[in-house]
Computed example of a mutant assay.
Amino acid sequence: MPHDPDLLIDPSRRRARGAVSNSSGRFEKLERSEIHDGWDIDEERGDFRTHLSFETAKTIITRNASPDLGFDRSINPYRGCEHGCVYCFARPTHAYAGYSPGLDFETRLIAKPNAAELLEKELRNRRYAVAPIAIGTNTDPYQPVEKSQRIMRDCLEVLRDFKHPVGIVTKGTLIERDLDILRGMASEGLVKVGISVTSLDVKVSRLMEPRAPTPDRRLRMIEKLASEGIPVRLMVSPVVPGLTDHEVERIIGAGAAAGAKAVSWTMLRLPLEVSELFQEWLATHFPDRKAKVMSLIREMHGGQDYSAEWGKRMRGEGTYAQMIAHRVAIAMRRTGLPKDLPPLRCDLFERPIVAGDQLSLF
């Protein structure tokens, strides 16, 4: 993709944001871009501030049949994510809402305030079959807006009351607010948490994940959760070829020292608009590394920026991908960390009795 500076947003208007542009999504009939029209007029343009809107969801449990995912159902309390991770594979989903996968994804957030109500309704359905629910696999449920909205906490309360197993993925330290719920669920084998650490380099992390907690703070979050008896998996995700790949062993060692009980990893994925956004970001912040990074990525995907083939999309294939996998395996053996946490319990599930229910005599 050619790097066109005219398509980039002024840095003063995108402070602490990941994407550097805000082009229209692939479903829009008109292409939106910000360029100077040639008139010598000073025009003040506003900053990209966080805007929250609400939608009344019709369902809340999303099903998938992907053979390379470890879950078949998930919940996403929010659309978009203020953490602003430039590499986020969920960015293209914002196009479905008519927004840009670029800066809109991290500034125009959509909350689902009726999520907990819908969750309870779906769990009460007699045809519902229990299996762990994943939360945070698309957008982070503990992004900053959760502090005021408390949608994730409401959902956790429902899952606790139904004794339903849940796996949470997050970078957000706000998860520590919910230790009172998580602690009890963990004691019954009903919860596990994945914390992703992409780089230990504060500068790289701040540019790549501008509003996510620092690497050191995430390690302390692992330590805190582990000390409360909550099983934590370190997620080296994603590994960015030519940029963070040299840190793999250090990240795994730091996670083990903090108390993680398992480790997983994925390679950088660049589906749809993410490829263009990531290349713009590289050209802006690491122009000297762009060619090397993209060359390694294409080497793993048959010359393409991305291949969605199941079984290969998460880690790529070829010599470089095999080398990273080998290094991770050695680091796991050295630290004694397995790839999986113990399975969650599904046998404790029960529907709480509510007013109007007929009590059993036995």
Rank of each mutant, 00 (worst) to 15 (best):
T173G: 15
P165S: 08
A115T: 08
E299P: 00
V328W: 01
A97M: 08
L159E: 10
P342I: 04
L118Y: 02
I195L: 00
R150E: 10
H246Q: 09
R13I: 09
L69P: 11
A19N: 04
A212L: 05
E223D: 10
R79Y: 11
A129Y: 13
F362C: 09
R289Y: 07
L8E: 01
R233A: 15
R218M: 00
L341V: 05
R14P: 09
V197F: 00
V145Q: 13
V145W: 11
I297N: 07
I60E: 04
I35S: 09
V158M: 01
G316T: 06
I297D: 03
P67W: 01
E188S: 04
F162Q: 11
A254W: 05
V232G: 08
S295H: 13
P231Q: 12
A134L: 12
P5Y: 02
E122L: 12
K312M: 12
G253W: 01
A260G: 09
A115G: 08
H3D: 14
G80S: 04
L207Q: 08
E44W: 15
K121Y: 02
T139L: 03
R32T: 14
V193S: 01
S360Q: 05
S21N: 00
I41K: 13
R298L: 01
M267R: 13
A260R: 04
N76D: 01
L109D: 02
G302S: 07
V166T: 08
G189W: 09
F48G: 06
I151Y: 02
H301D: 04
P231Y: 11
D340S: 08
R333D: 06
E34S: 14
I75Q: 04
A260N: 08
I168L: 12
H94G: 05
I9V: 12
P2F: 01
V197Y: 03
L282C: 07
F362I: 11
I181M: 07
V20T: 03
F105S: 06
G194M: 04
A134N: 11
G336T: 06
E122T: 13
I222L: 01
L159H: 14
P165Y: 02
E28P: 09
I222S: 05
L337Y: 03
R334H: 12
S23A: 06
R345C: 09
R220A: 13
I330E: 13
V169Y: 02
L270H: 03
R345V: 08
